[in-house]
Amino acid sequence: MTALIIVAAILVMLVFSVIGVYNVLVRLRNQVNNAWSQIDVQLKRRHDLIPNLVETAKGYMQHERGTFEAITDARSRAMGAGTIPEASKAEGALGEALSKFMLVVENYPDLKANQNFLALQEELSSTENRISFARQSYNDQVLFFNNKIQMFPSNIVANMFNFSKRDFFELENAAEREAPKVSFN
């Protein structure tokens, strides 16, 4: 009789701890999804800003058609991206095109004095920051979630209910990684 009670008690405890771990996993997964939607919101904000920016700058920079085309192309490719790795790549390329554009802008003092453009520039740099902070927060959440899924004992529960690892969101930006070299000889 006592043995039965002990076995029953152990079983009940096991069930409760499985429920507990399961709930933690679901919460973490929801946080990952929420963080991802934050990135999505900011990427959309970036896509919406670009036509305005191009429109404002076009009047001042008639000879930079190539730069504008690069941005518009990168934008449409980024908007069409489906999977996370695809989006990472396309958004990285768009970021690169935008930073090149900002470098070119340095040569047009009239444009830089335009109030409308200055406001757009602040919005754009804030959007770039938002994307990187949203990405930072998403990657933190993914790290927590992946750790939980892979570590004992929560990995048992994760396997039981088919929780799968998530991908990190890295923006591919070759230009940022290369340090500029200055030589005088």
Partner: peptide, 12 residues
């Protein structure tokens, strides 16, 4: 406003 929003995003 933008800076506060950036930090809001970073902190969730």
């Amino acid at each position: 406003f933008n800076i506060v929003e950036e930090m809001k995003i970073a902190s969730g």
